[in-house]
Each structure stands twice: as C-alpha cells, then as structure tokens.
C-alpha cells in the first residue's frame, strides 16, 4: 500500500472544513424537511384513525352499512352519508367531465389566439374562488333559482324517473350540492386535460389531418385515445376534490339522514356531516361516530388520490412516441 503524497491530495484541506460542514448541514436539513412531510402524512392517518378508534371498535364495520343516524336514540350509521358523498360526486362528475374535456379541447385546439389565454386564465380563476364563497352563492342565489325554476321543470318533464321527485322548497339538497361541486371540479379537470392535449405532438395531429380527417375526427381518433389515462387521472383527481369538499356542500346540501331516490331531497355527505355537526355533538359516542366518518373519508380520499397518482405515473399511451 502506498501512501498518497499529501501535496497532491485532492481531499479537502482544513480551509474547506467549513464547506464540508455546510454541505452536510444543508443536505441534512433538507432531508429532515422531506422526511417531515412523509411523517406528517403518516401522523395524519394515525391520528385520525386513533381519534375514531373508540367508535371503530364499538361498531366494527357494520357502521359502514348502518342506515340510521339518530343522536336521540344514540344509533349511528354511515350509509346515508356514504350515499350522499357518492351521489353528489357522481352528479358533479357526470356533468363536469364532458364539460371540462370540451373546455380543454377548445382551449388547446380551437380557441383563437387572442382569447385563448384570457379564457384559460378565467377558467383557472373559477378554481380559485374560495369554497365558502361558492357555498354562500349556492345557498342564497343558485338554490332559490333551482327551487323556483329548474327543479319544478325537471320534475314536470322527467318526474316519472324517481330521481326527479318533489322539488325542494328552498333549493338546498343533493342536486344543488352536485352542481356546486361541478363548478369546483370543472376547472380542475379542464386545466389538467388542457396540459395533456397540448402535449400531444403536432406531428400526430398533422398526420391525422393529412389523411383527410376533420378536426373532430382527429380529436376523437388521436388526441383523446393518446391521452386517455391522463384524462382518467384528471377525473379521479376531480373526484377526490368532490368527495372531500366539506364547506360548500354543508352550506347547500340541506342536511338530512334519509336516503331518498329524490335528487332534490336534503342529505349530507361524509365531509358535510362532520362540518355541520362539529359543534353540536351531544354525546361522546356521537363525536366518536363523526370521527369514524372522518376515518372513512380519509381512507376514500387516500385511495382516490393514490389511484390518480399511480395511473399518471405508470400508464402513458404516448410513451415511446418521440
């Protein structure tokens, strides 16, 4: 073994000791911050489950299928709120998905140069409106309009379908909540989809048009298929937003515990039930049950988010295309 002559050593001299400490310190601090984010997510999951634990052990999984929520008789079940969450999100997605994709296509393919940027910004601004403001608007403006006009009309024309039952007197109910969620979800899906559509190489679009396809045939044959997983992820991200929205939904959904086929009837979602009952919870068991609702919401929220992220990361039909 030969000793390295110190004169030619590339090791840091003492003068550089400060730098080495600095390097380690910076790396260490940033690593700690990153680990803190991971720990935070873990802590959130752990804490919410821990808070809900008394009622989880009390009810077991039958809580999820329990149809009654009666604080007086102290019987609690999550099914009405799971139904409310599923239906309000479904309404939102059914309306928002085609609308958002159409907006995204318009922004990426059709919009004249001059208005493209402006409308794009306006759609983004729609996403920036605080949910509590949208909820206020929903309860005092949109609700009454729906109650007086749209809901009676739908009931008249389509009343034979049980979904369109008696209009609500004030305009609060599942349907209104679904529409408010639509407004929140459209800009989310639209802006993700616009980015996706813009990523489709121009050559592919030209290739389709050069075959004598119309613009719509090009969209349907090339743009939509090559972005379909991204679109799916965008929809799931929108779903995550709709499932978890508490405030605006609380304001407009009316609050109820009865599962009804009538879309205009009041109900609650998981999130809105928690938000609406946070103060008034009478018994320890009711509080624990609300926290159980939160645990269910957490699990659903985590799953939808993970699903969206995994789809984006794993599948990409354009993979390999240039």
């Amino acid at each position: 073994m030969s000793a390295v002559p110190t004169d030619y050593s590339l090791r840091s001299s003492r003068r550089r000791l400060g730098d080495r400490i600095g390097d380690v310190a910076l790396r260490g601090t940033t690593l700690i911050a990153a680990l803190a984010a991971v720990a935070l997510l873990g802590a959130i999951v752990w804490k919410v489950l821990a808070l809900a634990w008394p009622s989880i052990t009390h009810y077991g999984l039958s809580f999820v299928t329990g149809e009654t929520w009666d604080p007086v008789k102290k019987v609690f079940g999550a099914l009405p709120f799971i139904y409310g969450t599923a239906m309000s999100s479904l309404i939102a997605l059914v309306i928002a998905t085609p609308l958002a994709i159409a907006i995204a296509l318009w922004l990426s393919e059709l919009a004249p140069g001059g208005v493209r940027g402006v409308v794009g910004s306006l759609v983004e601004m729609l996403a920036a409106i605080p949910s509590v403001v949208l909820g206020l608007w929903g309860i005092l403006v949109l609700g009454p309009f729906l109650a007086n006009h749209l809901e009676p009309w739908l009931h008249d024309k389509l009343g034979f379908i049980p979904l369109f039952g008696e209009p609500s007197p004030t305009g609060t109910g599942l349907f209104t909540a679904g529409l408010i969620l639509t407004i929140m979800v459209v800009p989310i899906i639209a802006s993700i989809c616009r980015e996706l559509f813009l990523q489709v190489p121009d050559e592919l679009e030209e290739g389709a048009l050069a075959l004598g396809a119309t613009r719509w045939e090009m969209v349907r044959g090339v743009i939509l298929p090559s972005t379909r997983t991204g679109i799916a992820a965008a929809i799931i991200l929108g779903l995550g937003r709709a499932l978890g929205e508490a405030i605006a939904v609380t304001q407009v959904i009316g609050g109820g515990t009865m599962i009804s086929s009538n879309l205009f009837a009041p109900i609650d979602t998981l999130a809105s039930k928690i938000a609406a009952s946070y103060q008034g919870a009478g018994s320890g068991l009711e509080t624990a049950s609300l926290l159980y609702l939160a645990a269910i919401l957490l699990v659903i929220g985590l799953l939808t988010n993970l699903a969206a992220q995994v789809i984006v990361r794993v599948f990409d039909p354009l993979k390999g295309a240039h």
Partner: peptide, 14 residues
C-alpha cells in the same frame, strides 16, 4: 401529491 389532495377537513381534524 397525496397531501395536496387530502380533504382539508381531515387536516382540521388532525
């Protein structure tokens, strides 16, 4: 990304 998509009411409860 998951933190970003978490329902904010869950954050409140945490």
């Amino acid at each position: 990304d998951v933190l970003n998509g978490l329902p904010t009411i869950i954050t409140g409860i945490f």
